[in-house]
Amino acid sequence: MKKPTVSAGGSDRSWLLAAIGRIEADFQRSSDTHLIPLRLAGFAGVDLYLKDESSHPTGSLKHRLARSLFLYALCNGWLRQGGTVVEASSGSTAISEAYFARLLGLPFVAVMPMGTSPEKVAAIEFQGGRCHLIDDPMRIYGESQRLADELGGHYMDQFTYAERATDWRSNNNIAESIFEQMRLERHPVPSWLVSSAGTGGTVATLGRYVRYRARDTRVCAADAELSVFFDHYLNRQPDLCLHQGSRIEGIGRPRVEASFLPQVIDGMVKVPDVWSVAAMHELSALVGRRVGPSTGTNLVAALACMDQMRAAGVVGSVVTLLCDAGERYANTYYDDQWLQRAGLACDDQRAAVAASLAEAELAAELVAGWRTAGDLAIAGQ
């Protein structure tokens, strides 16, 4: 559907320039996120770092994306004063977009799966947004467009525009930030950058940037169990589809999204959900605070990269993302009864993750359970 265009004249242009100014001022008030070293006795030659995106004002990696999407929509003339902003989201992007919508004085509606955590719903409402929950995750796209049309507003469509709204060359994107923060480390040029894929926009930014800067760094995308991204990476089929959503909130998709660019990815790991949750719990203990489930997915994929380096006798560094804080999941992934009902009870897997990190000997059941591709492919998989 053709995007509506706002007139650039008169009061519309004045509002547009003021809106861009508010977002830029908000960025100027913000500092960069921390890069946390995680020393693992079992991987003496490999340094692991967590880029802590939970320290953004809205608490997640999606704050960067939301800022970029709003600037992109404003500069394309898609937003107007008083117009409603609508987004399809599993929660974190909607929280961040609600923040920027409130900054500009715009109404905001998030179209989300029914199972989205209550903490995320509360965070959206705290920012002044409204939540529209639906049963079928495949309907969030069409329902978002329908609502935007009905309200005379704009459907932000993160899954289409994430990779093109982000300036991957510079402008303090996440890749540039990582390399600048790594500058004085023992291994300043990471061997691997690891990120899970929700829209695919962050992975696209990482992959494009390392090519643009001619860095000797590979990019690994981590995928959830109920997601099509891994299979699309293998076969490039654009019409892959699932009829249920990912159980790891914020990552994995039931269809191939336009922002997922397999050609800039060097390797992939498809992580069983129970191992993502197990790694989430173990990492929370290691860093002394709760992290979200997609960060657990990232840790498992980082383990695959580190194990390959160890086996090849390669020393170096791996950087992955701490996507959001675990407080958003107090009633789900941090609730033992909820995990039991969801089939994600993970005490044995957590013990195996802990042993893998401490001893650099990956649990056989983990290696048997995940799938790897690209430069991380294991013979027989």
Rank of each mutant, 00 (worst) to 15 (best):
R146H: 11
T5V: 15
K120M: 10
L362A: 06
T116I: 14
G316K: 06
Y72A: 12
S259Y: 03
P4R: 03
N331R: 14
F108M: 12
L193W: 10
C131M: 04
G42F: 13
Q158S: 12
R102W: 09
L261A: 01
S90W: 11
A368M: 05
V319G: 04
V228H: 09
D32H: 09
N235D: 14
G207F: 00
G77M: 01
A351G: 07
D12S: 11
A197M: 07
R289K: 14
G142R: 05
H132G: 03
F260R: 09
T116F: 00
R215N: 03
I140L: 13
G326D: 10
E24A: 06
T116A: 13
G380V: 07
S54M: 02
T84S: 08
E327S: 12
L240H: 02
L61D: 00
G115N: 15
V121W: 08
R208F: 15
D231G: 06
W78M: 01
A373F: 08
G245F: 12
V264Q: 03
L50S: 09
N298K: 10
D26S: 13
V109H: 13
R186V: 09
P57L: 09
H56Y: 10
F126Q: 12
L240N: 04
G77D: 05
L40H: 12
L206S: 07
S144T: 15
V111Y: 12
L303Y: 10
T297F: 05
D324V: 09
Y141E: 10
A377S: 09
E119I: 07
Q237S: 15
C131A: 15
I124N: 09
